[in-house]
Design a protein around this nucleic acid. Structure first.
Length: 573
RNA sequence: GGGCGUGUGGCCUAGUCAGGAUAUGGCACUUGCCUCCUAAGCAAGUGGUCAAGGGUUCGAAUCCCUUCACGCCCGCCA
């Protein structure tokens, strides 16, 4: 597979170092750092070699540098303060990078050939018992972004929502729908808001009349044993709430490929088969009719190392069904990636242990995220301290509209609304995607709807500027072989564009969305400097063509990075 | 009590996996720049014991140990 030019440069530098070190009879892993600006592009520190060679690091660096002849992508090798510094052949890098970006357009950053590996990204999977709130919004945004990145990195990706239509919460809601009447108006004319009222009321009624617990238990039993009426009603209610939830997600540019219903694994008896297999395990014990695995030897620690996989009445628990689901998943994919809240860590450890016990080698890979809280504390639907995702989306679009109106007087109402939607949703997604998943975040309106600095609009704005130049440029010579760039602004921008393929594959490999978000921000900042200091349309001759090529390559790179983040790139704003 | 995660200027944050050259950006604050390709921008400035302590190393935000703070978990719930 052909590497991008910067990777080729890096490999050539590594190879040259390998040879030089062999000549010196020195042994060292070859790790290249990014050199500080003005000292080349890649740096090799020679300090670890000092003891081995009994020479000063600086002398070693000098020696190594003198043994490496510049060739192909390596333009210059020199040494300074114990480092061997490599400079890339800039003209070659610029030429192939820009040609590639301009030729491949929306595919720039993606490998020429698709990878055969299938990856199934399970995300969101919230209980279909009510609207999604901001605390849970991290899940679909991280999941969808990761899926987009993996796709751009060349994998065959499917996204999946696991619909929990079996557990107690769903039964509570369905029981409420069957036996209660709503006594409040839903906050929105949407099924998730309508049905959550039944769920909430059922919980309240049960608190007041604990004797109804038996009825709930019976319904749960009926559901799990395939009672047609219970199954039908539950499924219908869940389906409606689910449809409403996916409507909310689609507002954030999130579309899910598959929905797998948990009840399927109960109905097709795969859960029963797993229970039987687990019962045959040496780790299995029984207590009052309920079965559990003793998982202490699997690294499970805490007060309780038992994992119960059946209730006393023989019915399955959540993780047991999840086990059946994962076994099904592995028949359909090579790699399973799950996006989960950090509260699922123990359950996933138990699931991994159980998979080992029944002899399944594959394990799901999990991306955990910490919860989003509000300044006044934990989000809680019951206590009413909650921000619904729909409200956040509305507010984002509304605030973006105010900003558009401030700046543009020449646009039609429709156009302004369209830009507001793109900018508002972008700001929202960006603010989630930009932060490492493991960091807990406190939701603040002013951060979530930030339109300047580190934000989607900042990146979108750079893209719109690029589009504006290209639109005004008229005809220019795209095939020009001479592309000279003399300013640091241009050269730095070219190098950033050249690094995009590597950034995408690293984000994919490490399952990190925030790295791409940071890259997009840096690229936009670099483009804005270029825009400010280097005239494009007023330039003449080959310089103009070269700069236009740089603008076009920037535009595609910004657009592709935004697309990986699930953020639309408006041509004007 | 135990397990896992997080801790970087007033606030948010990158860098931590693979230790390397003056610790990245942003917000806020101060000050400049729109007869010039869109000022959602650019430039300059103020602000840091990288939670604390110890250790390893030529070199530690990064690795090891201890402590502290915060979050999540330790259900026959999901």
């Amino acid at each position: 597979m052909a590497d991008d030019p910067f990777t080729t440069f890096k490999k050539q530098a590594e190879e040259a170092l390998r040879k030089a070190l062999a000549e010196l009879k020195a042994e060292s892993p070859i790790v290249l750092d990014k050199a500080p600006s003005g000292m080349g592009d890649l740096a090799f520190p020679c300090f670890p070699l000092a003891k081995q060679l009994r020479k000063a690091p600086d002398a070693i660096a000098k020696d190594i540098a003198s043994r490496i002849q510049p060739h192909d992508m390596i333009d210059k090798v020199d040494s300074k303060a114990g480092y061997v510094n490599f400079s890339v052949s800039f003209d070659r890098l610029a030429k192939s990078t820009l040609n590639e970006a301009i030729a491949r357009k929306g595919d720039y950053g993606s490998p020429e050939r698709k990878k055969p590996t299938r990856i199934l990204v399970e995300h969101t999977s919230v209980n279909p018992t009510g609207p999604i709130h901001v605390g849970r919004a991290r899940n679909p945004i991280i999941g969808d972004t990761l899926a987009r990145i993996l796709r751009h990195a060349g994998y065959r990706v499917d996204t999946e929502f696991y619909v929990n239509d079996v557990g107690r919460q769903v039964v509570m809601m369905t029981w409420g729908v069957k036996h209660l009447t709503a006594d409040a108006k839903p906050e929105r004319d949407k099924d998730d808001y309508r049905y959550v009222l039944f769920y909430q009321k059922a919980n309240k009624v049960l608190e007041e009349k604990p004797e109804l617990e038996k009825e709930i238990g019976q319904m749960l039993y009926n559901l799990e044993h395939g009672d047609p009426e219970t199954v039908r009603l539950t499924h219908e209610v869940c389906e409606r709430v689910l449809a409403a939830i996916t409507d909310t997600l689609s507002r954030l540019n999130i579309r899910i490929d598959n929905f797998t219903w948990e009840s399927r694994f109960v109905a097709d008896k795969s859960v029963d088969r797993i229970i039987e297999r687990l019962k045959g395990s040496e780790f299995c014990h029984e207590e009052g009719g309920a079965y559990f695995l003793e998982l202490e030897s699997f690294g499970i620690a805490g007060r309780e190392t038992k994992w119960f996989f059946t209730r006393a009445d023989g019915t399955s628990v959540y993780t047991t069904r999840d086990l059946a689901y994962h076994m099904d998943k592995f028949t359909r994919t090579d790699t399973a990636v799950n996006i989960l809240g950090e509260d699922h860590k123990l359950a996933m450890q138990e699931l991994a242990a159980a998979l080992s016990i029944i002899g399944v080698e594959k394990k799901p890979e999990i991306v955990y995220y910490a919860f989003v809280s509000l300044p006044e504390g934990k989000m809680s639907t019951r206590k009413g301290i909650v921000v619904n995702l729909d409200d956040l989306v509305d507010e984002a679009m509304e605030r973006a509209y105010e900003e558009v109106k401030k700046r543009r007087t020449d646009l039609s109402e429709d156009k302004m609304r369209d830009i507001s939607r793109i900018v508002g949703i972008g700001a929202l997604r960006y603010n989630i995607a930009r932060v490492q998943a493991e960091k807990q975040i406190v939701f603040k309106w002013e951060d979530a709807l930030n339109f300047e600095g580190t934000s989607a609009p900042f990146i979108q704005y750079a893209h719109a500027r690029a589009c504006s130049i290209l639109e005004k440029a008229g005809d220019w010579d795209r095939g020009s072989s001479e592309r000279r760039f003399d300013t640091d602004y241009e050269r730095a921008l070219v190098k950033m564009i050249a690094s995009f393929p590597t950034v995408v594959s690293e984000c994919a490999e490490y399952r990190k969305t925030h790295v791409l978000a940071v890259f997009a921000q840096d690229l936009a900042a670099q483009f804005n400097q270029f825009y400010r200091f280097v005239p494009v349309l007023k330039a003449e001759g080959p310089a103009r063509d070269a700069r236009l090529a740089l603008v076009e390559a920037s535009m595609w790179t910004l657009r592709n990075a935004l697309n990986c983040l699930g953020i639309e790139a408006p041509t004007e704003m």
